[in-house]
Amino acid sequence: MQQPLQARMVERLQALATAEGYTLTALPGVRLLRSNRPLARTPVLYDPGIVIVCQGVKRGYLGGQVYQYDAQHYLAVSVPVPFTMETEATAEEPLLAIYLHLDLQMAADLVLELDGRVDAAPAQAQSMMSSPMQPAMQASVLRLLETLGDPLEAAVLGPARVRELYYRVLTGAQGGAMREALAMRGRFGRIGKVLRHIHGAYATALEVEGLAAEAGMSVPTFHAHFRDITGTSPMQYVKSTRLHQARLLMLRQGITAEAAGLAVGYASPSQFNREFKRLFGLPPAAEVARMRRSFALPPAPVDAAYVSSH
């Protein structure tokens, strides 16, 4: 049975997200999601952000861990990570969710403002966190949804509502881990710098030695820290980024697999087709048809440095 706050959140989302797929809002970094059907496990690449599920269930699998985000938990992602995701939804009870692309400047400013004012117990930075939805967080989500229903309120009050949600995340159960991740200190910060470099230059020739030098680490140390943070090796991450980007190019621009492969840095069409099928389980044309048939196309990410395929 839904609690009163959750029921009101679902009611507002039902009214705002009437069509299946993504619904853009008056706030560039905020979009709504509705899915009337389940989605089997599929590879995704999340860019930094917050995913709040008000009805239905999403489940992510990364590095042997399961991250569930549903009406009781939200997901926070501090750096782009490739993982496998599945969705539970039906036509009678569709998945209803909010996705907030992380405004790194707003988040960093808030971290500075919170410095010294909240529990500063040591916390290890994490790339992905599933945290409990406390009543205060639900109330903040509801206020944002109510604001999005009015264009003037969304324009004037929307940014403050988003900032309020960031505050809830940064002071919540795993706020310390998120604040530490956003501070980009130590090994996490150096790997984060490399991830940004990869997302800005994935179509160029990238070698592990150069990426390790970018992080200021030896190759073995870089490998270990990179895998610890992203759940994969550096070159597998580069390959995954290229393939996710190629899939989005084919979806958004209708280009051929060969053109998409060339655009993301593959010289050999046969190698691109082989590695694409290995990641997604289908050849490029069949995977694009499946995506069009089974789910709505996500809009282009706000921050071009990252690729998002939720």
Rank of each mutant, 00 (worst) to 15 (best):
M1E: 15
Q2S: 10
A7F: 00
A7V: 12
E11M: 09
R12I: 02
Q14W: 04
A15Q: 10
T23W: 03
T23E: 08
P28K: 09
G29A: 07
V30S: 03
R34S: 09
S35T: 05
N36I: 05
N36E: 09
T42F: 06
V44C: 12
L45P: 07
V51G: 13
Y61C: 13
L62R: 07
G63H: 01
Q65A: 15
Y67R: 06
A71E: 06
H73G: 05
H73A: 15
Y74P: 00
V77R: 05
P80V: 09
V81H: 00
V81S: 03
A89P: 08
T90D: 14
E92C: 02
A97P: 07
I98L: 10
V111L: 04
L112P: 00
L112S: 04
E113V: 13
R117Q: 12
A121D: 14
Q124I: 08
Q124C: 06
M128H: 04
S130Q: 13
S131T: 09
M133D: 10
M133Q: 15
A136S: 02
Q138N: 11
Q138K: 15
A139G: 15
R143M: 05
T147W: 02
G149F: 13
D150S: 06
L152K: 10
V156A: 11
V162N: 01
E164M: 06
E180L: 05
G186Y: 11
F188E: 00
R190A: 13
K193N: 05
V194T: 03
A201S: 12
L206D: 07
E207Y: 05
E214Q: 11
S218L: 11
T221M: 03
A224Y: 11
R227Y: 08
P234S: 11
Q236V: 02
V238R: 12
K239Q: 15
R242E: 14
R247N: 09
L248T: 14
L249D: 13
I255P: 08
A257L: 15
A260T: 08
A263H: 01
A263D: 07
V264H: 07
S268E: 14
S268I: 07
Q271C: 02
R274C: 09
F280D: 13
R293C: 11
R293N: 14
F295K: 02
A296S: 13
A296N: 02
V307L: 02
H310P: 05
H310C: 00
